[in-house]
Design a protein around this nucleic acid. Sequence first.
DNA 1: ACTTAATAGCGTAAATTTTACGGAATAAAG
DNA 2: CTTTATTCCGTAAAATTTACGCTATTAAGT
Lengths: 258, 258
Amino acid sequence: MNSLEEVEDFVRNGHRHYLPHLSIDPVIFGYHDQQLKILLLNWKGLNGWGLPGGFIQRREPLSQAAHRILQERTGLENVFLQQFHTFGDSPYRLQERNPREFFEKYGVDMGEDNWLFERTLSVGYFALVDYSKVNVRTDFFTQNYQWCDVKEIPSLLFDHNEAVDKALATLRLQIYHQPIGYKLLPEKFTLPEIHTLYETILGKELDPRNFAKKLVALGLIKKLAEQRAIGPHRSPYLYQFEKETYEDALKQGIVHTY
Amino acid sequence: MNSLEEVEDFVRNGHRHYLPHLSIDPVIFGYHDQQLKILLLNWKGLNGWGLPGGFIQRREPLSQAAHRILQERTGLENVFLQQFHTFGDSPYRLQERNPREFFEKYGVDMGEDNWLFERTLSVGYFALVDYSKVNVRTDFFTQNYQWCDVKEIPSLLFDHNEAVDKALATLRLQIYHQPIGYKLLPEKFTLPEIHTLYETILGKELDPRNFAKKLVALGLIKKLAEQRAIGPHRSPYLYQFEKETYEDALKQGIVHTY
DNA sequence: ACTTAATAGCGTAAATTTTACGGAATAAAG
DNA sequence: CTTTATTCCGTAAAATTTACGCTATTAAGT
């Protein structure tokens, strides 16, 4: 949504194309520089940082809407995306932050009972993406973005902080049941990388020796011949997931501690 | 909703009181006779078995709506209720089963574009209740009910079978993180009772000796002096949850196998 | 009153997993 | 060629899980 015509049509007629009272605001996780990060957008009209988001078309299946929104924002297709909670306990989400002034500045009149003022529940999805493949696309409403370390999330719009917290908690709970490492890491990665990732998600230290030993013993990852040269010390070997063993293991749930 | 006036008002004006396109259909679990059961209602107008359900009032927080609906259907308050998924991938839920005939029989005209025909997403909650305390309340739309063993669920309305399956899967995943036994069992219970409950939920056999040993060793349950006389054999002792230890353990997640 | 059938539930030991760390190997900077 | 930083192999003790033998208790049947 970039031209003023599109925006005006969205404000005036959006309620005919989209389901009212509902939005999808995905928490997009990426991993870079040994940090777990989420994608935040700066919403101009609302004047603050928040999750990327979008509405559900009237005849569009819910999960398809989530994929479309993600595609529109990041260019990614076939992404791992999982619904984790529907937020509807803060009943008056948009009324707190009246964007009327913003639209008027551009000559768009919202009218009295514009659909964008109504109560909105948000279906929360989280996405696990390969950080290096994301191409954030901004639009009329969102001209800045940042990848923000989950340890330093600022105060966000609406109930988005609650959504981020819940997404993280879900990630933690499902770490042994979903392909979390597989989706967040690039194809080839080092032991320290996967080790730090799991420590970050679980929020606790894991003995690096035992951690690596377990992953290899279970046949979840395999060592490659290549090494990666980084820094003034021994070069780490590269590893790769054993896709089949890994997926089988997740079905059972990896009960062990890694 | 029992009188014809109420029903007529609901059909005609419900869209003013409730959020359109959304419903809540709780999966209510109870445990009786060594069987895990869910509550099903026979929906007259739709002519089939389905979950109890209801709509969200326009200014009502989502979780409060879930509790209200549960209260209206079963008389229970302060019930353990957990959201587990929002269903919106079958876009045309009600259009498959047109209840127009049913209402016309009672002289209620639905009109052409009645709100009840529109696409409806369903926010799925599951409840864990003490079977013995439930008082099912039927109404104009629902005159029969049954507690149905989860192993024998018939074909249900809309996507309710999917909802039941997903609720069960969630129960299984969360068995070591939520007070599942605590909420489903009566205050005092026997070892065989809790043992069968866990076997049913997990869908696999657990060695009864090790199972009991573990629960007692972790301090989750304690043996009472009383026994219960049942059947032509040794009477089992009664046990009770150690509420505090139990809740602490759940926060960590009981990693062990029981 | 004694036998039998049907469960309840204690106890022990072997197998497996987890935890804790010592220390060698490697790479680049000075 | 020494120092510093980091990778990651290996071993052993501790803890947990698994497997299963065996006794205890109750009521029904004879």
